[in-house]
Design a protein around this nucleic acid. Structure first.
Length: 537
RNA sequence: GAGAAUAUAGCUCAGUCGGUAGAGCAUCUGCCUUUUAAGCAGAGGGUCGAAGGUUCGAGUCCUUCUAUUCUCACCA
């Protein structure tokens, strides 16, 4: 460099750079030349804004100032200052956060710092912080992270702020963040030109979280929902466990799996589609109640209700049945809603949903009768097929009676069940792991909870007769041979386990992503998963 | 898997009949000591998603491809 930029600093971490436009141009030229000469490993394509920020980082380091120091003592979060403000106190505070707005007015400036709790305005006056610090500040960018020491006060226009006495750069930001401006109109916040491109929001969730505060709230709620449920289960004395994600035989649900390969063992493995069979092994082993918050993986379509990996909590409780489990689910969801939203009602897909207990209960046969006028109780496969035809439903000729009922239900009933509704007593054929109803032949003790037209829970009294279980799995294997890719596989180890004897048991699965969607009012699963699956850029 | 829409500056978006690439915010320079979508004056910034084609000339018309969004189908 022919002429380095003027750098002055004193013994604190304060710096001062004075540049003219011409000097910047010269430096850019030199930078380009040195890039050519030295084959920089840096492969980031720079726009003008990034170029300038890279240079600034370099200048700081040349001046012996670390743009990435290791720590800063924080006394207050932004929200604490706002909540505990006392007009006359002038409380000394130190705060840290990302610069989100800047309003420079010559020898005084205002800017907002954003920390994890919120935003706080900082006021800085040249007379008070001195020329060196003030000029330091003038060079910082929106997006930089700084620490401020000062005292609290309220501005002429009434905003609680921090009057800065010193400033320390904590992290230099190299990429411009898409700042949106906001304004209050009649107490309502109006946001201008928000960062709203959905693809970029999902791909660069970190940016989404910085600039769209309501996104953060959704995920904070998600965390609170899981914590609340975990405590709810733990307080009953049930054990939180972990079971394999990599499985030699997958099972517990009707779905197509992901496959992977273990090199050292040279064997194919599957990513689990459900935890059910492993959790039941633990009930055999003598635990009275086990639960697992689990990532499951299903190799199927992607839309706003389905992500290839999703979260379920499964719970198994010995000596209980599905009627008991229904009461538990009602209580759990009601309590969760109250804890999270302070309300038992929520807006989901345009519908006001009430989680007030008790939820409606309806057998699948009655539900179909109510919403289609067709009584399918006791109908044979052929009769069911003609009922479906009457209703205008086209069916794959391969599917059998259980699936036909499921199709009719899914097409004509499920979308209409907006308020929480337990659908009970499914055909045995659809539920190979559920125990048959003692007084209803061909029907199992099973329920699903439908909310907003979508399945949220699935539960049954678990089948524990190993002989019948083997028959059921073997007939699944036959369906598989007929071409049903989702039919289950015979899992000999699971059968061996329940041959030792599994106590009567109620099982439950709750789709966490969907529950979070309902309780946070989000219409897409992508808005409740930090990093939803997208094709590579 | 099928259909529709979208892709232009860091962000949000205009761009008419095919004829020199536009705005607001952000950035840079100057002024401004309680502002808040701060203000005033000026400046810089573009492989118009990618590749072909038509044309004297393409952001614009045609073809193919890529990604996303929405709807439908399957799945929870």
């Amino acid at each position: 460099m022919k002429r380095p930029p003027k750098l002055r600093h004193n013994n604190s971490s304060i710096f001062f750079i004075d540049r003219t436009q011409r000097e910047i141009k010269t430096m850019q030229k030199e930078n380009e030349q040195s890039n050519k000469n030295q084959e920089q490993p840096l492969q980031i394509s720079l726009n003008d804004q990034m170029q300038r920020r890279f240079e600034e980082r370099q200048h700081l380091m040349e001046a012996g100032i670390n743009p990435y120091p290791t720590h800063f003592e924080i006394s207050h979060a932004s929200l604490e200052i706002l909540n505990n403000f006392e007009e006359e106190a002038k409380t000394p505070v130190s705060v840290a956060g990302r610069i989100m707005t800047i309003r420079k007015m010559g020898k005084a400036s205002f800017f907002h710092l954003q920390d994890s709790a919120g935003r706080i305005q900082i006021y800085m006056k040249k007379d008070e912080v001195g020329e060196v610090t003030y000029n330091t500040f003038r060079l910082l960018d929106i997006g930089d992270i700084v620490g401020i020491r000062g005292f609290t006060f309220k501005t002429r226009t009434g905003e609680i702020s921090v009057h800065a006495e010193s400033l320390e750069l904590l992290t230099k930001s190299l990429r411009p963040i898409p700042v949106a401006k906001e304004k209050e109109v009649d107490g309502e916040k109006v946001i201008f030109d928000a960062f709203s491109d959905k693809e970029m929001r999902y791909r660069q969730r970190y940016v989404d979280l910085i600039v769209n505060p309501e996104v953060k709230q959704t995920f904070i709620k998600r965390s609170a929902i899981v914590s609340f449920m975990r405590n709810f289960f733990a307080q009953q004395g049930w054990l939180e466990v972990e079971t394999p994600i990599l499985q030699p035989i997958y099972g517990g649900a009707a779905a197509r799996p992901f496959t992977t390969h273990h090199n050292a063992l040279d064997m194919q493995l599957y990513l689990r589609i459900a935890n059910e069979l492993y959790l039941k092994r633990l009930i055999v082993g003598g635990f009275d109640g086990v639960f697992e918050f689990a990532k499951d993986f299903r190799n199927e379509g992607i839309d706003r209700f389905h992500n290839p990996e999703f979260t379920q909590v499964e719970l198994y409780v010995a000596y209980k049945d599905y009627n008991w489990m229904m009461k538990l689910v009602e209580e759990l969801l009601y309590q969760t809603a109250l804890a999270i939203n302070k309300s038992d009602s929520t807006l989901f897909l345009g519908n006001e949903i009430s989680l007030q207990t008790p939820f409606r209960r309806l057998s699948i046969i009655d539900a179909i009768a109510e919403y289609t006028g067709k009584n399918i109780g006791g109908q044979s496969e052929e009769e069911l097929r003609s009922t479906a035809k009457d209703l205008g439903l086209e069916l794959d000729p391969k599917i059998s009676s259980g699936k036909i009922i499921d199709e009719i239900f899914g097409e004509f009933v499920e979308p209409k069940l907006i308020q929480p509704t337990f659908i009970t007593d499914y055909p045995t054929e659809m539920s190979p792991l559920a125990k048959e109803h003692p007084s209803l032949p061909g029907i199992v003790e099973r329920f699903e909870l439908i909310v907003g037209g979508k399945e949220v829970c699935n539960s049954f009294s678990e089948l524990n007769d190993p002989v019948i279980q083997r028959e059921r799995l073997e007939s699944q294997a036959k369906l598989r041979q007929r071409g049903d890719e989702e039919a289950m596989i015979v899992d000999e180890d699971f059968l061996r386990a329940i041959e030792y004897g599994m106590p009567p048991c109620a099982g439950l699965g709750i789709g966490i992503d969907r529950l979070v969607m309902i309780l946070t009012g989000q219409d897409s699963i992508r808005d409740v998963i930090f990093f939803p699956h997208l094709k590579p850029e």
